[in-house]
Design a protein around this nucleic acid. Sequence first.
DNA 1: CCTCCTTGATTGCTACTAGCAACTATACGA
DNA 2: TCGTATAGTTGCTAGTAGCAATCAAGGAGG
Lengths: 189, 189
Amino acid sequence: MEPALEAAHLIDRLERLARAGETGGDLNPAQWEALRYLARANRFSRTPAALADYLASTRGTISRTLASLEAKGYVRREPSLRDGRSVEFGLTGKAADALARDPLIAMARDIEAACGEQAPALAEALRAILRMAVARNGGRAFGACFSCRHFRADMHPGHAAPHHCALLDEALSPADSRAICVEQEPKAA
Amino acid sequence: MEPALEAAHLIDRLERLARAGETGGDLNPAQWEALRYLARANRFSRTPAALADYLASTRGTISRTLASLEAKGYVRREPSLRDGRSVEFGLTGKAADALARDPLIAMARDIEAACGEQAPALAEALRAILRMAVARNGGRAFGACFSCRHFRADMHPGHAAPHHCALLDEALSPADSRAICVEQEPKAA
DNA sequence: CCTCCTTGATTGCTACTAGCAACTATACGA
DNA sequence: TCGTATAGTTGCTAGTAGCAATCAAGGAGG
């Protein structure tokens, strides 16, 4: 238990350092996290509600965060075609530029320097921890689409979107299937 | 680089989940971190300035955080005997009770469950990462006293405080030497 | 002893953030 | 068609962070 508690402390402290590096620019930490999420989420998941779940925040707060990003020109808003109540957000070129200078990259470099080829093992361990923590909190996993139990590979061979989601009944491109999804449920073990 | 970036994302997200579990009670995340720090810092390090360095925050902010904790009865303030400008903070019984129910313990349990006997290796990897990140930011390491280059073991054998700090010229108890210290500098490699 | 500079801490001010709750609009089930 | 649940926004309030100014105390040098 003691090394585990120590590890928890270290995670906390690392994140705090990273956060300190994020302030001072045009974006605050919450806005950075929103941009990162939108960059990695598939097209079913770029909504305020999904982002609120992902960040363990509330819809009101997220609504304002996205409004602020929109006002600053980082995201674009479009009404959802699937649900008239919903809106979808996409990144602008300005957001792509910003993400290319994401302060988190500095931390990734530290991880590389400190762990070297053990970085994949570290990521795997962290993923396992996150799964436990998410399950305990009753949240959603937001895993990669292709690792979902609704994912059907190569149902449309030869097409640009060869895979398929059995839950939403939509064709999936290779890029879609690599992105994270609000509906993702891990394949049964 | 990609697994490292993924790991950085995961650390961010884990911390955010932990933070969500910290709200709603009597204490906010910054106050929790202050309590945790005070519980682990040796007697040279329980000052606002040291806490501000540790949390990569400012003295003004920390001053208010500690004032709030004092008003709620979690910490006690005493003037420093070594420096008339400085104050030292100690935890009250109420703080000890709170820390026994620290939300971070839930995360530590998740780490145990997910990593099992690999938890010490995980902690070691995270420590190495933190060292890199701290060096990059020009901050202080806040390592354990006994791992410091100013630490002299057993200079006063048979006493209650057998060890010694060559920087501050003070005797150190075993508990002191296990605590984290604002002045800690790693032993030369 | 006196002076200048540095450091520890606090506080007025401002800007921003988070969350709750109320509200509108749309979807969906009976 | 009606009732209920869900997606999103917004008014309000409380709290937080950071900057800059201020006060107090150490420390170096003459």
